[in-house]
Computed example of a mutant assay.
Amino acid sequence: MAAISQEIPLTGVPFPRSEYERRQLGVLEAVVSAKLDALVVTAHGHLRYLSGYDGSGGYFAPFPLILVPGRPPTYVVRKYDEHAVRAYCCIDEIVTYTQQHDFGRVCADVLRRLGLQSKRVGFELGCWNLAPADVSAIQAQLPDLKISDASRLISSVAAVKSEVELECMRDAMHMTDLAVRTFQSSLRAGVTELEMVAKMVAAVQADVSNIGGEIGLSPSMTILFGERTKLPHGPATHHAIRNNEPAFLEIGASKHGYAAGIVRCAVLGRHQESESLHALAEEVIETLIAAIKPGTTAAAVDAAGREVLERSGRKDVFRQRTGYITGIYWTERGNLSLEPGVEDILKPGMTLHMPNILRSENGYLIGAGAQILVTEHGSEVLSKVPHTLHLA
């Protein structure tokens, strides 16, 4: 079983086993610091971070990775997916279940075998891929199990990237920039949102061989034209842009799951409302970039941007958080946010997505975002495409 990745082409983990062991050790140290006896990991991004396997089979039921200080990790997975898990992960101890109703019993059996039936165990209660029914099924089997919320534990460790992770982020950013430049050069009257998506995807695919590895554009990109820029996270359609309309783009490429996203906007012709608001967005993002440095709190960075909005007299154009930690998986829950009241400390090696999206009086969304690496002495902007408004 352990040699599956050597038998099937294009399988295996993207990083050396020592990298995964480093990550697991860091998480186990956090488990001890949190006074937990073990951690049950179910968020797909966190599974990939610790094991290499992306958790994609976990739509069926959770695939918990159980970490106990002083013991090798144990992976509990659906039997149907066992070969895929073994082919794409670095975990040796794998236990399987067959049906959804088997999950609670099998997972409880593993926890019992590890001597955890009455211990304090962390679960990712605030992350994706763990339903209340899943937790109840385990608790029904182990009534003395002390379940604690550990949603932020892995994200606090994974927030600081290693050099191999930062290399993935830089490669992903290179592809994101390529997609943005394609968007800018292809903007013309009559082009539809879906046609623009196809152009960006084709440009990235044509350049993938220069980067290597598993890389591509995130399917969660947002590309909107004209009146449709009023729709947060709206899907791309056959709607075409016309002269004197704005265009909104939030996009990110990823390599081995490490996503680097930015927001870039454009106007075809002139659109005074969008142009005026984008000028404010540029002032905000430049202030945010200047505020980022190691030792600063997330709340302090957020406050710097809000101060600019307050001075402008247009603070109501901003309706969200300032930014959040990026890395493996763009939309994982439980990661550090740049928002009021968050006292997490920025550290060198963290990467941040600051979309900085503003809403105009008539509802148009305009943004000038940044993907930032926190460095020893401040910050580094990873994108090479300027955050100024593109006028086509």
Rank of each mutant, 00 (worst) to 15 (best):
S118E: 15
G55C: 11
A172K: 05
I325T: 12
G369T: 11
P16T: 08
V191G: 03
V208H: 00
R17K: 14
A38K: 10
L373N: 08
F183C: 03
A172Q: 12
N243P: 00
H390C: 09
V106M: 06
S151C: 02
G57T: 05
E310Y: 03
R22C: 01
V180E: 10
P232R: 09
A150V: 08
S337G: 03
D54H: 13
Q139K: 13
I285V: 14
S337C: 02
E227G: 02
R22W: 07
L47I: 14
Y49R: 07
A247C: 06
L166P: 03
E275Y: 03
S155R: 00
F123C: 04
K35W: 04
A131T: 10
L231Y: 05
N362S: 14
S254D: 13
L39I: 06
G378I: 12
E124T: 08
E310S: 10
V85T: 02
T237D: 08
Q184T: 03
Q24D: 02
R333Q: 14
F248C: 02
F318G: 06
R359Q: 15
Y75P: 04
V374R: 05
W330G: 05
E339C: 01
S5Q: 03
G126I: 02
V180I: 15
Y53L: 00
K161E: 03
L25T: 13
V76H: 05
F225W: 02
H377Y: 04
T229L: 07
A298P: 00
V32N: 05
H256V: 01
A43W: 03
S360C: 04
V31G: 09
G58N: 09
L36F: 10
S379R: 04
V381Q: 11
P64N: 14
N244G: 06
